[in-house]
Design a protein around this nucleic acid. Structure first.
Lengths: 172, 172
DNA sequence: TGAAAACATTTTAGGCTTAAAACAATTTGG
DNA sequence: CCAAATTGTTTTAAGCCTAAAATGTTTTCA
């Protein structure tokens, strides 16, 4: 009875690589750790936004998208950028228009399209929140060296590309 | 009028480090990239779970926790592990008991405590899903080398510790 | 012992989120 | 030109999620 091989790839009797029940425990652990980090930070930011500014994270995120687009965005654009469903954006925008933070108008050239912008109030409030938000993030990542940050950026870029490729394989 | 310094830390007229409006753009970008990766992968997993097994991600996550605890867990344990609110767990458990995947009983020794376990059905279904789930994760991370995975694990561990420290500073 | 504190869970109210279907407007291709 | 496909948004139904208050139970400690 042969001892177990230490080889990663098992060879069959014809010396050809064979399908083994592969061990993907490391990738699984990596995914769980990634998720933990994100959940942890997201929860912290959510809580601080609520306490300091009485605003929800999704509202803040939507305003952040619009702050980068002075000429406004369509709902579809927002939906893609935020990676959330269309219906989600509809409701979010509704509430932000209601509270006076957003301005929504139908496009002149394509009556299907809704263009939304930050109002003066919306922009002012967002800028105030964003300034503080940036310090929270800096604090949350405070123990990472600049090199750590660079390296994480690189590896996460690679991760993103890998995941996008995998997603595209399934849904071409 | 002096030219702008290239120094990271500015010095004032008395040659003492001075508060500058610090630039945390890198950390902010890192956070957004982290969030993008997680959202991307999470969405992909959510979609596959729904298509293949008609199960939601939160249900799967809860079953995953219980699979690791053959003797069951209290609702508080689950809540802490999953990093979600207590009320959230209550509802999730309710639906999973309803569908026959979970068994819930009041602790003999402490009538405040509810202990939940996977039923035979729940465990069987979870194992079936988990096997496939693992291959999805492997595929999503397929372009990372083993070294990349190790390095990411290390950096995310550091990130997690940093974030926990920051959270504890605020909420001691 | 017995009131106060701590703990585990549920309830409440409101908002977020999704997938799928429906609707409306525009573009495309025969 | 016009029917079909595509695109942008909203609606629907169901479930997820949170914070805060409420409920019931156990522990603490004066």
């Amino acid at each position: 009875m042969p001892a177990e091989s230490d080889c990663t790839e098992m060879l069959d009797s014809e010396t050809k690589a064979v399908e083994t029940p592969e061990d993907h425990a490391d990738e699984l652990r990596l995914w769980l750790r990634l998720l933990t980090c994100t959940t942890l930070i997201e929860g912290e930011v959510r809580g601080r936004l609520r306490q300091r500014f009485d605003v929800t994270l999704p509202r803040f995120d939507l305003m952040a998208q619009l702050d980068k687009a002075p000429d406004g965005m369509t709902l579809s654009d927002v939906s893609k950028r935020m990676m959330v469903s269309n219906g989600n954006v509809t409701g979010l925008v509704e509430r932000l228009v209601e509270s006076g933070h957003l301005d929504r108008r139908t496009s002149e050239t394509d009556r299907r399209v809704q263009v939304i912008r930050l109002t003066k109030l919306g922009r002012a409030e967002f800028r105030r929140m964003a300034a503080e938000h940036e310090t929270w993030i800096a604090d949350l990542f405070a123990d990472l060296t600049p090199k750590d940050v660079r390296e994480l950026m690189r590896l996460l870029a690679k991760t993103k590309a890998s995941a996008q490729k995998s997603a595209a394989r399934r849904r071409p």
